[in-house]
Design a protein around this nucleic acid. Sequence first.
RNA 1: CGGGACGUGGCUCAGCCUGGUAGAGCACUGCGUUCGGGACGCAGGGGUCGCAGGUUCAAAUCCUGUCGUCCCGACCA
Length: 502
Amino acid sequence: MIFFSNPRRSVLSASSAFYLSFKPEALMSKKITTRSENYSDWYIDIVTRAQLADYAPVKGCMVIRPNGYEIWEKMQSVLDKMFKDTGHRNAYFPLLIPESFLQKEAEHVEGFAPECAVVTHGGGKKLAENLMLRPTSETIIWHMYSKWITSYRDLPLLINQWCNVLRWEMRTRLFLRTTEFLWQEGHTAHAAKEDAEEETLKMLNVYKTFAEEYMAMPVTAGLKTESEKFPGAVNTYTIEAMMQDKKALQAGTSHFLGQNFAKAFDVTFQDEAGERRHVWASSWGVSTRLIGALIMCHSDDQGLVLPPKLAARQVVIIPIWKGDDEASRVIECAHKIKEELSVKFSVHVDDRRQYKPGWKFNEWELLGIPLRIEIGPRDLESGNVVLSRRDKKEKSTVPMKSVSDETARLLETIQKDLFQRARDFREANTFLADDFQGFKERIEENGFYRIHWCGQGKCEERIKEETKATIRCIPLDAVEESGKCIVCGAASPRRVLAGRAY
RNA sequence: CGGGACGUGGCUCAGCCUGGUAGAGCACUGCGUUCGGGACGCAGGGGUCGCAGGUUCAAAUCCUGUCGUCCCGACCA
């Protein structure tokens, strides 16, 4: 039986609720709340109507449905390749971690203990030692690393794992913050401090590349402040993105762990000189939260908008007809085009007879398919097809002969335009702020603010209390610019990025 | 965990105040007509009213508890 750290009920009550709240397929019909009406409702509508996820019977948990899981699989395959190309290998560590492991690193236990779920019973008996459901795997991994690492020849050790983790969150939101979520966590061990630091930044850069080139989502890479860093890290780096409501979202993190875990778990190696030393470490992760980021970055009031590089289905072909013989001719042509395009793209022909074309247009727009090809009797006659891009309400008529080239060109353009538009939006909503009072007023409209900050925790705390904004990061590309802290007026060497966040 | 709103066919909701045979629209199934931006007709199927107690001859309706979702605050990827 499983109890959580604030034990209120057993799993038994949850399982009876399962049958009662479980509901089969919900079909889309209702209109989506617009972003201007209510941004939160809009987000929930997109996730549920596009059938990306549904609420699970357990509080804070979600079911990732095929439409959503498909996106995660795409993300995984791209990232996994990037990890392997940088020398990492995958492994799997267990879900259950002895409670005592968490205690070994002081900051780590303080940070994670409150949000841990704990298993107290197994096989009908109380356990000798409680087991935690991993909130992150540093402890179990470093326990194992201490057995595996003995020589400098064992280093660097570069391991990644794809898994689920559990954090008992107070307020949850589909994809953005759920009790259980899927992620990847890389854990590396190095002989030299510089190697671990380099690794930390290298992986941060992998995330930035992924966000910008695949998700078409511009991000700011930077260093987290002391109060925002990962419990147990020396430094935490982040990529921060701006959502369409002008709030910040932390999309990925990379930590330089110093020797904190190596010391806590006694991970040492002999160097070339035969001397025993502690290893240096990094860890880094991105989660299914990226799906939430993707939605909030690009989607509109019609539904999901997917960048071509992450769309499981990139092109949908809608045949249009009157009468049965016309139908068979048009559908045949649609499949021919599909075959031609399938060499390079993933293509779907929607030849369902029970829906009219207009209905299908709306449905596929809801699902975010980047490009739609419409083909009807008029096109058969003229030898053309109509291409309609999802990101803009633009249709073009192109000769059937060049459909493959045009598709390639358009998908590439869509990918680029999505990024460009997101970047323009971010730039248009990023401001310099030098006066605290003005900042406090302006922040009501969200946005990013580049402010001077002296580096003191108490000034950071005041910003948080008076504006509800946080210092998102100290951008890596921040230019040297001497100024005065927006709160206390003390000297500041460069501007930091602040804003309200998810 | 505090404040607010809400749980009734798959979806959106009415019915509840004043207890007495569970409803509508959409969706779904069958047949026919339709088909270039969310078609129409006819005929069907489907709900122990979130859950558990209680009051009552009788509870979707009244009472108590509980679970869940959304919004607003304190914690976080």
